[in-house]
Design a protein around this nucleic acid. Structure first.
Lengths: 348, 348
DNA sequence: CTGTTAGCGCCTTCAA
DNA sequence: TTGAAGGCGCTAACAG
């Protein structure tokens, strides 16, 4: 008969302390209504046995599992890891653990991960949906009534609240800034244009361009350095080459920067550059790259607080105040003007 | 009488299907020894009820919790988030979830987090110990017999295996490289010098310097841009200014780079620069920064595989083959020669 | 203030 | 091939 587990149980403690299990339970839950001496004694035994309550047993009784989960495309991505950092920190404040899974923007993996998380009865979900339209995701989320908040991208056709950057406004403002610099031919390089965030940014760019009576120049073909090189070279050789480039995502910004550098194009002299999303070393580059900075930490913070609010106050699920839900919180971005857009270099 | 939980249980399924719980249990565990028709029927009911087994109940019976945990200083740090990415991926392969907690190199938080993880009965631990010497950590880890592997830094006085970069060798090789370039006065800028990794790198630097008959120039005062500026300015004004700088951690490298740039010092012309740890945009900077690259993914991979091996084969805990444990696996670093060290710029 | 008891959902003997 | 029953560790009635 080998021991099931190496951990001692509440029962062990009770026996060894010569008290009932209830008393021990009271002790580990704050020690209300326990004789001070008994309390001290039991505490001593607990320490002696290095007893730690078993969360599984508690969860089984219907309590929370004290875990929340984060479903993101990638953990290594600075955007999402920054987000994870604040989510974890707030989870900790709420006495909860954070489970992280990576979906790699793959709907199938997303569902699989979600199922595992459901099996583990995680208390709540923060999710950057691989596909905002996914019916399978909505169904699953609706079937198990597990509190969820989406980040970075909304989940359409569901009443799951979402916290996203104001991509439209960010791109609009950025484009306007370029226009104010006097640039007339602003080329927009997108990267995968099928993402919600990218589409929103394109919308913003378009709106600003059209409002100014300029013409939109969009290239959605950028995938890597080579495609960026091709796109930029081509546009430079055209009759009306661009005088500014607006890149819509991190990797595209880097490719564009490297290509321009490689081609010895003067930035911002010949072509200005402005990117969506901040880069770690953007200010150490020459020229320092101006960017639209997303409020990552804030997105993570708001989403997590929303989630824990939901967990604390089990909202009347359908009626009444819930009727006006499907909230979508858009957090404003910030335009970080460094040098590549044509602004004067700030002193460090 | 409100329902305890919204989830249906194995019992619900059994009742609805008109079979015993055992049969349902068999079905969800592979369906061995079940009449094909019964099996199909039960499966249908399971689907109809969107039944998902409750992991807490399984764990309570003594099974694994199917979770492993990562204790790292910070999730946002690219080094550790890259590591987390591969750990999560391997965990997934092993049908396990990954819990991540941040210690911020604070021993107290580390212990607290660990206690929570123990309460959750996590199956295993991957930990970058805040302090390799911590007795409290060792004690705790020894008391609960929970499989653990340390990364980035070893845990001394314990038989927990560790997977770390070969910091000594990396620094040694890097310093030698600078020496081969002909630099005679190589200044080493450390950052917090009380960390294991930094100390190892200092050892490597020293060894190379001394082997070459040069004299070590060490500055351990770098904490931010200002301290870096002060340190570099001071050394430049000295009788024998350095002709190369070797920085021992990421942030220090960036500070040094910015200071040199600010001071209009020609790199690598006047002073060469080489850093420990790779930077996201190191190759986009001018000059592109040469670095010692740590095998992050490999460290994460090896550590996680070690952990799951341990979990699979509950090793005869003390005797026999275990006697030669306390393994310490040192993974070789890679010298990435770009331009700042004096090497010719590689074409992109 | 304290103890007894009945499950929470699941798996695993043990019988049939 | 199937089912009944016990127990994993814990907490919340419900007595004393």
């Amino acid at each position: 008969m080998r021991k099931k587990s190496t951990h001692s149980t509440l029962n062990d403690v009770a026996r060894k302390a010569g008290v009932g299990t209830t008393t021990v339970s009271r002790v580990i839950n704050g020690g209300q209504n326990v004789n001070p001496e008994t309390l001290a004694h039991v505490r001593r035994v607990i320490k002696a046995l290095s007893y730690t309550p078993n969360q599984a047993a508690r969860s089984l009784r219907g309590e929370r599992t004290k875990t929340i989960s984060l479903l993101i495309p990638s953990i290594a991505d600075p955007f999402f890891s920054s987000c994870a950092e604040v989510v974890q920190s707030i989870a900790q404040t709420n006495d909860s653990l954070l489970i992280v899974t990576a979906t790699h923007n793959d709907a199938k993996r997303e569902i699989e991960n979600l199922n595992v998380l459901i099996r583990h009865r995680t208390d709540g979900l923060i999710i950057a949906p691989s596909n905002p339209q996914s019916a399978a995701l909505c169904d699953l989320l609706a079937r198990v009534a597990i509190p969820a908040v989406s980040i970075d991208r909304p989940i359409f056709k569901s009443n799951i609240p979402s916290v996203v950057a104001d991509n439209y406004d960010g791109a609009f403002t950025a484009t306007q800034h370029l226009i104010e610099h006097g640039y007339k031919r602003i080329l927009c390089l997108t990267g995968e244009s099928d993402f919600y965030t990218i589409r929103e940014r394109i919308r913003g760019y378009r709106k600003a361009i059209e409002s100014a009576g300029l013409i939109a120049m969009l290239d959605t073909s950028i995938r890597d350095y080579e495609s960026a090189e091709h796109a930029i070279k081509t546009s430079l050789k055209a009759a009306n080459p661009p005088d500014a480039i607006f890149t819509l995502k991190n990797s595209t910004t880097v490719y564009a920067f490297e290509v321009l550098q490689q081609l010895n194009v003067k930035v911002p002299g010949t072509i200005a550059l402005l990117g969506f999303d901040d880069l770690e070393l953007a200010s150490a580059l020459r020229p320092a790259i101006s960017v639209v900075q997303q409020p990552i930490e804030e997105i993570g913070r708001i989403a997590t607080e929303l989630l824990f609010n939901e967990l604390r106050g089990p909202h009347k699920s359908r009626k009444s105040s819930a009727s006006k839900r499907p909230q979508k919180i858009e957090v404003k971005t910030r335009l970080l003007l460094r040098h590549s857009c044509g602004c004067p270099s700030p002193r460090v």
